[in-house]
C-alpha cells in the first residue's frame, strides 16, 4: 500500500501542477483510485475465490446442514431430524463404530511404522554408500504411483506372489490367505501404505539429516561417543522438527486412506477392513443415505481437524522453544 500512496501523491501533485485542480476533483481522483484498486483486487483474487466458494465452501456448509436431516437424494423433501443421525451412528451403526476403531488402529500403526522405516531408510542412504543415489530412487519410487494402482499390485502379490513364495520356501507366513482373513487383510493395507509412504518420509528425513552440522558429530566422536550415542543425543534432537512434520503428514494421510483400501480389499472380507473414508463413500453412494453419510463425514472432519490443529499447535510451540 505504501508504494501506491506514494505513487498517488506523485501523480496527484503532478496533476495539481498541470491543471491547478480544485479540492473536489482530487477527491474524485482518490475515489476513482480506490475503485480501481478494488477492481484489480477482484480481478486477481476473484476467479479462484469463486471456484473455491462454489466447490469447497458452499458444499461444506450445506453438508453440515444435511447431517441433521433425513436427506436421501431421491425424494424432494428434506426433513430436519435433529441429532437422530448421530444417535443412530453411536448406538445402532456397528459397522461405523467398527470402521472408526479400525481406522484409529490403522492410523496409529502406520504412523509408527512409516516413520520408523522412513527414518531408518534415511539413515541408510545418508551413509557414504556407492549405491546411495540408486537406493534413494528405489525407496522413493512406489510413492509416485497412486494408491489405487498400488492396491492392485499388492492384490496380485498377496494372492499369487505370496502363495508361490510359500510353496517354494515353506514359510507358513506366506501360505496364509492374506486377503481372506480380517486380521491379515488389515496388515495387508498397512504393508501397502508402508511401501508407498516410507520413501516419501525418507526424503524429508534426508533433508533434515543433511542439516545436522558435521562439526558436532566430529566433536562428539573425538569425545569418544559411539555411533548409537551420536544418533541418540545429537542427530535425533536436531531432526525433531522434521519428525513433527512427518507425524503430521502421516497422521492426516493415514486417517483419510481410501484408494488402497478400495483396490486391495474393498473393505472385505465381510466389511471387516472397511475404513472410515470407504464407509462414508458406501453410505452415501451405495446405500444412498446422504443424511447419515453427511453425519459421518462431519464426525470425520472434526477428528481430522482436531488432529491437525493439535499437530500445528505442538509444532509451533516447539519452534518457539527452540
Amino acid at each position: 500500500m505504501n508504494n501506491e500512496s506514494k505513487l498517488e501523491t506523485v501523480k496527484g501533485s503532478a496533476i495539481k501542477k498541470q491543471k491547478s485542480t480544485k479540492v473536489s476533483e482530487s477527491v474524485s481522483f482518490l475515489n476513482r483510485k480506490k475503485w480501481k484498486d478494488a477492481g484489480l483486487f477482484t480481478l486477481f483474487v476473484g476467479p479462484v475465490l469463486l471456484a473455491f466458494t462454489l466447490v469447497v465452501l458452499i458444499p461444506f456448509f450445506t453438508g453440515i446442514y444435511y447431517a441433521f436431516t433425513d436427506w436421501n437424494g431421491i425424494t424432494g423433501t428434506v426433513k430436519w431430524v435433529g441429532l437422530d443421525n448421530f444417535k443412530y451412528l453411536f448406538s445402532e451403526d456397528k459397522q461405523f463404530q467398527q470402521s472408526f476403531m479400525l481406522t484409529t488402529k490403522y492410523t496409529v500403526v502406520s504412523i509408527i511404522l512409516t516413520n520408523a522405516i522412513g527414518f531408518g531408510l534415511a539413515l541408510l542412504v545418508a551413509q557414504r554408500l556407492k549405491t546411495r543415489n540408486l537406493l534413494r530412487t528405489v525407496f522413493f519410487m512406489p510413492n509416485l504411483i497412486g494408491g489405487l494402482i498400488l492396491g492392485f499390485i499388492w492384490q496380485f502379490i498377496f494372492v499369487k506372489g505370496f502363495a508361490s513364495i510359500g510353496e517354494l520356501t515353506g514359510i507358513p507366513l506366506f501360505e496364509l490367505a492374506w486377503l481372506g482373513d480380517a486380521n491379515t487383510a488389515f496388515w495387508g493395507i498397512v504393508i501397502v501404505s508402508l511401501w508407498q509412504g516410507a520413501g516419501y518420509i525418507m526424503i524429508i528425513y534426508i533433508a533434515a539429516l543433511q542439516n545436522v552440522p558435521q562439526e558436532l558429530i566430529e566433536a562428539a566422536r573425538i569425545d569418544g561417543a559411539n555411533r548409537f550415542q551420536i544418533l541418540r543425543h545429537i542427530t535425533m534432537p536436531l531432526v525433531a522438527p522434521a519428525v513433527t512434520i512427518c507425524l503430521f503428514l502421516t497422521t492426516a494421510s493415514s486417517f483419510k486412506v481410501f484408494d488402497a483400501n478400495l483396490s486391495l480389499t474393498n473393505g472385505g472380507p465381510f466389511k471387516s477392513t472397511e475404513m472410515l473414508a470407504l464407509n462414508i463413500y458406501t453410505e452415501a453412494f451405495v446405500n444412498n443415505r446422504y443424511g447419515i453419510g453427511e453425519a459421518k463425514a462431519l464426525i470425520f472432519f472434526i477428528v481430522v481437524a482436531a488432529i491437525t490443529v493439535l499437530q500445528v499447535t505442538i509444532s509451533k510451540k516447539r519452534e518457539v522453544e527452540s
Binding site: V45, L49, F52, V55, V56, L57, I58, P59, F60, T62, G63, Y66, G73, A252, K256, F258, L276, A277, I280, Y281, A284, Y290, G293, E294, A297, L298, F300, F301, V304, A305, T308, V309
Partner: peptide, 23 residues
C-alpha cells in the same frame, strides 16, 4: 481470504463430496 484458503486445507474430501456431487 488467505486464512480461509489455508484453513480449508484441513477439510477432508469426504466432508464435501456428497453435496458437491449432488449440486
Amino acid at each position: 481470504i488467505f486464512m480461509t484458503f489455508v484453513a480449508a486445507m484441513i477439510i477432508p474430501f469426504q466432508s464435501i463430496m456428497i453435496p458437491l456431487i449432488k449440486t
